[in-house]
Amino acid sequence: MNIPRPPIWLLILVGAVAILAVLILSGRITWFSTDPPVEFVPNMDHQFKAIPQSGSSFFSNKSSLREPIPGTVARNVSVYPLAQGDVDLADSVNVDPNYEKSEFVIARGQNRFNVFCAPCHNYNAKSDSNPIVKRGLWPGIPDLTRPETAALTNGRIFHIISAGQNLMPSYADKVSPIDRWAIIYYLRTLQQAATAGE
């Protein structure tokens, strides 16, 4: 049988398409798309149930859950009772539980300090060379290692973290009470280090 030889350009074209197909299918080539991914077989991918932080078609305001009754408190959540101005009550309400200052607790304090405090107060608590201070985005961030701050009681610092102070907002919704104490213990080590370094 006499099969005619295919032209060279056809061979090159077929080869290129094959290589491209292999690269795409193996995930070597990807591209960005604003379109949602195609679902070839969407079997049970989308079930009629409430999923956290996803809209719902069931209620008219697209919320998955109903609003809780005003004043509802979630289980195992402590609500900080004081307002920002109740400075005088800070020490009597926030009694230092005196957790053991073990390496684990201090490490936890460091971890939470780095997450929630360091963006403004820097990793050394001196509020000196972090990007937010350098760019001048926020005015008057105090140095937490200065003597005035070091002289504050633990309960007072707990009050500042929980209720906020001046321009600093409350972090009661983000940092649990035990983490706040851990942060305070870690801050004390930073203050001691700064005093010793001077």
Partner: peptide, 26 residues
């Protein structure tokens, strides 16, 4: 590959590059 590279337009043009990469917000 189907889901990789999905980059939808968000309602607020938030930049993780600025906030996490440059401002070092955790």
């Amino acid at each position: 590959v189907a889901d990789v590279g999905y980059r939808p337009t968000q309602p607020v043009p938030f930049s993780h590059k600025l906030h996490a990469g440059e401002l070092h917000v955790s």
